[in-house]
Design a protein around this nucleic acid. Structure first.
Lengths: 343, 343
DNA sequence: ATGAAAGCGCTAACAA
DNA sequence: TTGTTAGCGCTTTCAT
């Protein structure tokens, strides 16, 4: 019952009475082997439960592992799950396997994970950069031929391929939608920390839309939240202002959940909402939630396509692919503001 | 610009003018090393961008990799993301890293992934079994000391630790809730395929609740759906019956999305709903969605705890840990049935 | 069709 | 404090 040593190639060979190389040949369908030998080997493999040690194989063959390593900041955020699905659909057709791990948006953990992937000699590295992470240490690997792709946010300290959404114009469109429906005071609830790329871009889009409409930018209308609960708090705080917003723009899907939940809890159907990134059940809400939908699967597919091209020898300049967002108007952005009712 | 060979320990050693073993010592903080040597080595490592080849190390050391391998059926389902988070929180404190991949609920892909994990000599294997998968091939590995834990569903062909929800009693409680509020015709929309463990258990709970209340089991009220869209279709189909249900029980979170969306689309607020597994925005719906909440993080934590105990030498009998579900009554299950209105 | 020897990158076990 | 030799499990190369 103690932990037996796992069987090796040599064990199988001994069991059958052939050389290790012969077993290797049978298993890899390398050189020739008599039907008889093949059968005996296969039987012994099954009997012993032999599992080839891929590490030993790779170390000898020298080639990279057939794994695509993906680092994401949050395992439970469906956005990243959808991105992962897009990657997998694409790379799976090329014999690569996607393995993902979480950085919890912590640069140290991101570094540990990427190092682990690199130490395993994966064939492609994809990272959703953590806030504050530096990626210059990846340079020699990229130079050595490892495709590196940043997702959702650009990397820092390393010029390489990346795939992002049209954060700025998407946010702009969402806010413009609110403005078009008469809103003049529009709250922005964004990510924490405020150094996050996507938050910056989306806030920039928000300000652009305000500027275009000749609206003043009131800093008291801009809040940030770390999670759903924080977004709920930020929402009630915004609505408690002396001159409260009549509409809210959610900077991401998690924030959107917090805003919508808080509005429902306080029965504030009069507040218009537009969210960046789609959420489940958006169309079942009352009013249905208008969103600036991202296309996470496409982000994943695009990243995979770039990586495959690089693996295939593509040495062209690094590119940043931008996946368009789409305003899906479902109703929540179309309330007339309360002020109009009173006018 | 061509793909240079990656630097090895020997390269670093040559660069500094010491032996490979010395470099190894510095990097692993093994034996002693003069401050001078250490510094030179570290400098060379940085200069060359040397990354130790973990495969080579592991093959020599013989010990398992410090990875926990997790196979889930769907990367984009937040339930599994939450489970993963629970696992990671627990194993991370013990120096283990969680890596996950998707089987897409396909036995062949599950097998390929587990083989890949096994070939990498991970320290723990966790699997959400695919429908139709057999796990007897894992037996020798478990015997060799590899902890194997099945999540959400029990494995087939291998008696080992597993962690599941109280599917049957949870479903029972949800359906009983509907019955308590006067419903007599309750539709069940479950998973496809119907061989799925969770679907079977939840359906059993549904039938139990009906039986206890002395209600007949009408097979025409039981439907299955593969995805959200299918669940919407199943919903409208059930409601189009000559003698339609006044309430619906959703067999999982995805199905719940489909049901709720369809009811919203057709403005059927009169239909009561209870869902197995919580969904985002459940409380923002009108009426708010009553659910039998699972505790995915706890499932993950429990699985991790078992695995860690096994790694620690625990050789006790395999156990099945059952994580309780909790009925969260938010309103959607409390409509009086239409029939009562007419009576 | 099969085997023997050497070596992949690294570290354990001894030296020195 | 440092170096040498052997060997982890596998595959390559060259024999037979």
């Amino acid at each position: 019952m103690a932990a037996n040593r796992r069987p090796t190639l040599a064990d199988v060979a001994r069991e059958v009475g052939v050389s290790a190389k012969t077993v290797s040949r049978v298993l890899n369908e390398d050189g020739p082997a008599s039907a008889q030998t093949r059968e005996q080997v296969l039987a012994a493999v099954a009997r012993l439960g032999f599992q080839p040690n891929l590490m030993a194989r790779n170390i000898r063959v020298g080639g990279p592992d057939t794994t695509v390593g993906l680092v994401i900041p949050d395992l439970a955020n469906p956005f990243f799950g959808a991105v992962a699905r897009g990657i997998e659909d694409t790379v799976g057709d090329h014999g690569l396997t996607l393995l993902m791990g979480s950085s919890a948006d912590d640069p140290a953990r991101e570094r540990a994970l990427t190092d682990k992937f690199l130490a395993r000699r994966i064939s492609v590295l994809m990272v959703v950069p953590s806030v504050g992470a530096d990626h210059s240490h990846l340079k020699p690997h990229r130079t050595a031929g490892l495709p590196v792709v940043f997702l959702d946010r650009p990397g820092v300290g390393l010029a390489t391929d990346s795939v992002v959404s049209t954060n700025r114009t998407g946010a702009h469109d969402g806010v413009a939608h609110l403005i078009a429906h008469g809103h003049r005071r529009i709250g922005f609830v964004g990510d924490l920390p405020t150094r996050l790329y996507t938050r910056r871009e989306r806030l920039a889009g928000y300000r652009e839309a305000l500027r275009e409409a000749g609206l003043a930018h009131d800093r008291s209308l801009v809040t940030n939240a770390h999670d759903q609960h924080g977004a709920s708090a930020a929402t009630s705080q915004l609505l408690a202002l002396a001159d409260p917003p009549t509409a809210l723009f959610a900077g991401n899907n998690i924030v959107a959940l917090g805003i919508v939940t808080e509005l429902a809890r306080s029965h504030r159907k009069d507040v218009a909402v537009v969210a960046f990134d789609d959420v489940a059940l958006a169309e079942a809400l009352e009013p249905a939630l208008t969103v600036v939908a991202q296309n996470p699967e496409e982000i994943g597919r695009a990243a995979a396509a770039i990586a495959l091209a690089r693996l295939d020898g593509d040495r062209s300049r690094t590119r940043t692919v931008t996946i368009p967002t789409q305003l899906i108007s479902r109703g929540s952005g179309e309330h007339a503001p309360a002020a109009q009712h009173e006018a």
